[in-house]
């Protein structure tokens, strides 16, 4: 589903964030991306979300070669990926419903379908009663759930998360991880960048560990 082949990412200041990285993530797999801060986790996710492009090497996602994807096609490509961020990235002047509906509105879905799918999505993350609230009225954990509901509302093939539990306490973090597992069980490929080792140690998923922009030897099954 996601395949990196000898990928380099150099920034204009000569800093090399990724050096010759190769790995493969299967369809329907769930995996963690670990490593110290500065190891290149965020850069790697940015390459998958096409926020950045690789300097060298090939990135294949869902059978599409991102190296050659024209700029005008990027929005349509991003609709196949659900993104979850550490700081949620919600729109604070819009209700929970409108936040979750955003990807569907952008995709031009009709009104009835939007209502149905937003409610289904909020139901899955346990926030069905809060659709009229503004994000500011929710707790940190709830805001993250809204972010996840928005990421899955248009049923993406891939779910990417960058430190989704970074600001949450252990109990809430476990809840969030269980949510990701649920989505994985219905076939979504899930790839989560995290440094929460205590949490993922207990979970039976592959870890892809980065060290200074390279794949660290230890790959835990």
């Amino acid at each position: 589903m996601i395949q990196f082949t000898d990928v380099y990412k150099r920034y204009p200041n000569r800093y090399e964030a990724l050096s010759g990285l190769s790995f493969h993530l299967n369809k329907g797999e769930m995996a963690f991306l670990t490593g110290h801060s500065g190891a290149g986790k965020s850069t790697l996710l940015k390459l998958i979300a096409l926020i950045e492009r690789s300097s060298h090497g090939q990135v294949l996602v869902n059978k599409q070669n991102l190296t050659h994807l024209p700029k005008g096609k990027i929005p349509y490509y991003r609709r196949q990926i659900g993104l979850v961020f550490q700081d949620h990235n919600l729109l604070h002047d819009r209700t929970v419903f409108d936040n979750v509906a955003l990807p569907l509105v952008i995709a031009g879905e009709n009104h009835r379908e939007i209502g149905r799918r937003v409610r289904a999505s909020l139901d899955k993350v346990g926030l069905l009663g809060k659709e009229r609230n503004l994000p500011i009225a929710l707790s940190g954990g709830e805001q993250q759930r809204v972010g996840i509901a928005r990421a899955v509302v248009n049923r993406p093939a891939i779910l990417l998360a960058d430190e989704p539990t970074g600001n949450l306490d252990p109990d809430l973090s476990r809840d969030i991880m269980q949510l990701f597992e649920q989505f994985n069980k219905v076939g979504t490929t899930v790839f989560i960048a995290t440094h929460d080792h205590d949490l993922i140690r207990t979970l039976p998923y592959r870890q892809i560990q980065l060290h200074q922009g390279r794949l660290a030897q230890r790959e835990v099954e």
Binding site: A49, P75, R78, R79, L83, N89, L102, I106, R150
Partner: peptide, 16 residues
Amino acid sequence: QSEIKVMKLVGATDRF
């Protein structure tokens, strides 16, 4: 600006 960035992240075209 931040709102536009979010919209683009969830697949908004420039036109939208």
